[in-house]
Design a protein around this nucleic acid. Structure first.
Lengths: 210, 210
DNA sequence: AAACTGTACGACCGATCGGTTTGTTTGTCG
DNA sequence: CGACAAACAAACCGATCGGTCGTACAGTTT
């Protein structure tokens, strides 16, 4: 096992930079974030950043991947501890709302911010964000399909429709939570998905009353 | 009737600038839009812009008001031609989706973009966007209340909950429509609201089948 | 005609942008 | 030890940022 101290230091710096970049990007935007600000916030020099990423776009793409990891760890992973089926879907929704409410990121959601920022800007960043959105939707749809297989959702349920509404409710929650009193966001977001799941779930004991 | 030619010219320039600013802001962002680019696009000088707005922030606030007018004219007004009640709610949803699908603005929706851009940036722009979001929600809620009064929605319907889901479905539609094939946006957005309205509407003839 | 006002321009300002160049420190090797 | 490389930093580059200034012209008022 060879642990090159230089490479280790580089890796440490890299994740520290990307963690900060993810957070700052939810405030100033993925493009609005400037390398100078980022360097100053971290106490490193601007040229130090170019030692790791050859351009701003490369750093943006790396930031996206880091945000994906954070989402997987802090939102998806906790939900995967719930048993497969309708409870896991519900756990994912709650986990997501908790992530927003805990203000892990000042802007709430890295992807919601970035996707709206780049929805009319062609390029690699736009394309990657689109890929990850499709991936996220497919994941939610898969959880829905699993719930049907487990007999916890009626077989007639359109999982694509269910996933659409699931995602829409969560997206709206993060937007409202940053602009309006949070009482006008999370309670409605909980109820919307809970109503939808309970209506399609034959076993009412699997989900909370409210 | 005094029509000062100078004021008329100024007003003409002002609306031309703001119309362009609204459209450009959905691409580059309300903040990402630079005065130099805006001036060049319009064929005027940068300093000419400062004759009308003393700072960029003033122009941003004016751009927001112009976007509000556009939304009122092109989305709300057509829906108001539908009879009060559940049909008007449905018309508003369709009108909104049509507005997105027609690509009136390259970024889809001025407000969705701006609200995510400014959700973590305190200041007058943030505050104004929050006000307009609250106003929009209150408007949708009022349409829901009217529908109950008209007996076209069950009295037990929670109009705030209904308005939340109505808005969430529309918001998600504009995001998906810019990043994914539009078949994975509009059909789901239609169905989501239609299902919700039909479920709460005692008279099934008021709404389309699909 | 003179006085005045609103609109618009070109030139310019300091600051900051993304990016480059040159050089130094830090750690791994033969 | 010396050769080498990865990880940084300082100084600097042209371009662009938001904003100011003095000026010119068009149109209104007296």
């Amino acid at each position: 096992m060879t642990t090159d101290g230089r490479l280790a230091r580089g890796a440490r710096t890299r994740t520290a930079v990307l963690d900060t970049a993810v957070a700052l990007a939810t405030e100033a935007g993925l493009d609005g974030l400037s390398l100078g600000q980022l360097a100053e916030t971290l106490g490193v020099s601007k040229s130090g950043l170019f030692a790791h990423w050859r351009s701003k776009e490369e750093l943006q793409l790396a930031t996206i991947e880091r945000a994906r990891e954070q989402w997987a760890e802090q939102v998806v992973a906790p939900a995967m501890r719930a048993p497969r089926g309708v409870r896991r879907l519900w756990a994912l929704h709650v986990s997501r709302l908790d992530f927003y409410a805990a203000a892990v990121l000042p802007g709430g959601c890295f992807f919601a911010n970035a996707e709206f920022e780049y929805n009319a800007r062609p390029g690699p960043v736009h394309d990657r964000l689109a890929e990850l959105l499709a991936e996220w939707i497919a994941f939610v749809e898969r959880l829905g399909t699993e719930a049907i297989t487990a007999g916890e959702l009626a077989a007639e349920v359109d999982v694509r429709q269910l996933a659409y509404e699931f995602e829409a409710v969560g997206l709206s929650a993060v937007m409202r939570s940053r602009l309006l009193p949070s009482e006008s966001a999370y309670p409605f977001a909980r109820r919307a998905v809970l109503d939808r799941l309970r209506a399609a779930c034959p076993d009412p004991t699997l989900l909370p009353e409210d």
